[in-house]
Amino acid sequence: MKLRELFVPSAIKLDLAAETKDEALRELVSCMGLDEKSEGILYKMLKRRENLGSTGIGRGIAIPHCRSLVVTRLRVAFGRKLSGLDFKAIDEKPVRYVFLIVAPPLEVSNQYLPVLGKIAQFGKEADVPESLAEISSPEQFIELLDAKDL
């Protein structure tokens, strides 16, 4: 499956209201269409994963991720905060692009790891941060993935 097929426009936030890492996680979790309790559990899991080590991989990109029982299928979201968020990233620079990935413990298609790997690879491409800064609509975000054949 292509990455672009996993992203829905409602889960692509090009102007996050969040001012902190925690707020960004909450904002992206709220795109998942879960009930309040499930959102809370998912947020806690993502926070606990962050506590093990930041998912900020450098160059302004973070990929918070976890498996949780509260989702029934692989879900992804993208958030952009051009002014930057303190994510305690590997390169200690602010994070401007956040890719959220959550998956259930059991997946028939077992996509979680490949998707995590593809997004990590995408984030390492030299032109990606600049391209992500320039897009102005969720559709352009999808087009960017399409252009990368992802």
Partner: peptide, 8 residues
Amino acid sequence: QIQDLRMQ
């Protein structure tokens, strides 16, 4: 929460 952590 425990189950999710165990999965992790």
